[in-house]
Design a protein around this nucleic acid. Structure first.
Lengths: 236, 236
DNA sequence: GTATTATTAGAGTATATACTCTAGGCAGTC
DNA sequence: GACTGCCTAGAGTATATACTCTAATAATAC
């Protein structure tokens, strides 16, 4: 593999594991056993590395969220979209962690991310539209659909941060892809009231697959706090 | 005002305006026209300052989210809760921005924040319960109520980040409290399908008050992108 | 007034960070 | 073998950052 690609790969790996803020260009170089000079031969600065990684992420999600125009959506399609989005979120999970800072430090990135968000919102919106066409959810006025799409986006993009903060973990990277995908349970919760009777049972079954498994946090009995909060998503 | 309090106040102000990551202890001291030595006389380190600010935040929200046990909830109560939560979010808005890093750097904070989250989730859950008692929303199984509460929390805590990233603003702190409170529109959207017929109209009217006002972004016509995305929350 | 304590200034420091600069190796080409 | 273009090493740098240390000043107690 080319050094340039190795830099991108290692950067992503280190950013994901320890956070962009905690990883310097010197760390990246050291991790690859190359010199800082070498790294800076391939990239003008840290921002450029991040920007290229973002572009990969963008491409990935855009690819997954390509909604077919010529046929109805199925529940399998919906599952695929949800799984893919959370896979993407996982692979580039460092990104949302320091999002605001990153956007503040790089106007290209800010602009691109804004457009990316709009494309994602549009895709979610279109999915809702096509789920209605397919008779999976009841059709809703455009107004409501937009607001719902935005809520879906907010839940998706915040789910990881929630998991990370909810973890008691002094142990660091204790987050798993399985846990992350429990976000799908939350997203499907948003859609429950709008399901058509024909599909209600099927979607409930799908949702059930992602239900948080309760005792994820072995070092605490959890009974007390769960009883106290009345909230059992399996992360207290 | 005591120097110690001035430090807390200025820190909060600077953190909110420019982000914790961009504000050093030297900045804070300079802003107050005191010496770094003086600052470190009052606080052992930066983490301690942040921790105390968080405790203020915690106290504020706990105070607002004290749910009465002895009477039914009204729509005014709901409005108050929503307004208060977003006010709190606004006053301590730096906090969620660098949340993960902050929790990673301070285990006290991590622990406290975890408990804080649980209390908030419990409060939201209790509010749902009491809204059902009051006949404002239909009662729901505990299962669903928990998942809904979590979604409300995710929407609330992510709304600000969304606004910040959605802004085209090269101009920096262009976010207003009014915009922030449009998050209430999003939260009420979550509750729409569960409203009882008796209250549906009233809640819709309440929600309408927070509807995003469309052309917030004067330098772009917005027509194109809104038409393209089909999403009009007024931030594109 | 004097002793004691609380507060402050300000210079200083160790470490980190993003990045630069120069010199040279290596592969291919003629 | 020499020339060329790509790649790499590694020492070095300017700046920043969190924090320390000493000495001096203000406030309070007796």
């Amino acid at each position: 593999m080319k050094t340039r690609d190795k830099i991108l790969l290692s950067s992503l790996e280190l950013f994901n594991e320890r956070g962009e803020r905690n990883i310097t260009t010197n760390h990246i170089a050291a991790h690859l056993a190359i010199s800082p000079g070498n790294l800076y031969y391939h990239f003008r600065n840290k921002s450029d590395i991040i920007y290229e990684i973002f572009q990969e992420y963008e491409k990935l999600v855009d690819y997954y969220l390509d909604i077919p125009e010529d046929r109805l959506l199925t529940l399998d399609d919906l599952t695929f979209y949800l799984e893919s989005v959370f896979d993407g979120l996982w692979s580039y999970r460092f990104f949302h962690r320091d999002l605001e800072y990153l956007l503040d430090s790089d106007t290209r990135l800010r602009q691109d991310y804004r457009e990316f968000t709009n494309r994602c919102l549009a895709a979610i919106n279109r999915i809702f539209g096509k789920l209605a066409e397919a008779g999976i959810i009841e059709p809703q006025p455009e107004d409501l659909r937009s607001a719902m799409s935005l809520n879906v986006w907010l839940v998706i993009t915040n789910w990881m941060a929630f998991l990370k903060t909810a973890h008691a973990s002094d142990e660091p990277a204790s987050l798993t892809l399985t846990e992350l995908k429990q976000g799908i349970y939350q997203v499907l919760t948003l859609e429950l009231p709008y399901l058509t009777p024909d599909y209600r049972e099927q979607v409930l079954a799908l949702r059930e697959k992602y239900r948080p498994t309760l005792p994820e946090n072995p070092e605490q009995s959890g009974e007390a706090s769960r009883a106290e909060t009345g909230v059992s998503v399996g992360i207290d």
